[in-house]
Design a protein around this nucleic acid. Structure first.
Lengths: 149, 149
DNA sequence: TCTTAATTTAGACTTATTCTAATTTAAAGT
DNA sequence: ACTTTAAATTAGAATAAGTCTAAATTAAGA
């Protein structure tokens, strides 16, 4: 494992006051090195290609612990399984209607939400935005198809 | 059933080119009359208190059909089960961190998203916002608790 | 090294949802 | 009203995602 990533992972675990177990290293390392927002199932497959193996319970326990520690984000899009990522920069998501790809969108790109009127007494602390549409690659494909006609 | 709601439900079903079955009436009627974003399970319980009964498969099939027809919205918050509502006005959601309550937030209250920079070629068509924080009722409760000390 | 609380494990269990194949029915046509 | 038929409904089996349990292991502090 890349030493730099290993150190990053280690500091995350320490920060979260979690024991530094090989399983946790493996899971968090896998997530740090992934940009596809894998499901628990995919994380399990990826991690278990090599030593150390992690049981299903450990995969779920670890993901939950890391989520609670604010080290990973859990994303629900209603496609069955939750998806995970280790992107710590505040961000939102874009889902392509055509290819289904899930991409991160930086918080800055979305900008601040206009102060919303929720009635007196409401305190909004965070917000998540899911943008839906067609990604550049799919849009280009469509354009080409159109031109061919 | 209230004649007005029945007509509303009927026009929705016709619009969606769905057969007008008693089960569909019952399900959609239940949703129109609910403001709690029930789960499929809760819809099943509510509908099956009285005639006509609807099987589990029908509940799910109907909700999916209505969702595809744009008549109901399916909301996923990662709490296990999907939740449903018949609010056709464009809107977003607020989840209270303290009591877990899910509330609608009108589109106007949230306002337009600032034109986001997703890179060339991206076409954003819709977006959903989930606001999280503390609702007025819970905020008041906390305030009272604080003062008592 | 010893201790202990935290962690991991296999596998059983639960919950949410989908599937299947047989039966029924809404609605269009006569 | 009566027939027809594609669509819808049904009970229950099947699947998928995640949680729980209780025993075994282990990280980390004394």
């Amino acid at each position: 494992m890349d030493t730099k990533i290993r150190q990053k992972v280690e500091s995350h675990l320490r920060e979260a006051e979690l024991k530094l177990t090989p399983q946790r290293f493996a899971i968090l390392d896998f997530l740090v090195g992934s940009d596809v927002h894998p499901t628990a199932e995919q994380i399990s497959e990826g991690v278990n290609r090599r030593f150390p193996r992690a049981s299903r319970a450990t995969i779920y326990n670890t993901l939950k612990a890391l989520r609670d520690a604010g080290v990973v984000q859990e994303v629900y899009l209603g496609e069955g399984a939750a998806r995970y990522e280790a992107n710590l920069a505040p961000h939102h998501h874009f889902v392509c209607r055509a290819c289904g790809k899930l991409e991160d969108v930086s918080s800055e790109a979305v900008g601040a939400l206009p102060p919303c009127e929720l009635g007196a007494g409401y305190a909004v602390e965070t917000f998540e935005v899911v943008l839906r549409g067609v990604c550049a690659a799919c849009a280009a494909k469509r354009e080409r198809r159109k031109r061919r006609r």
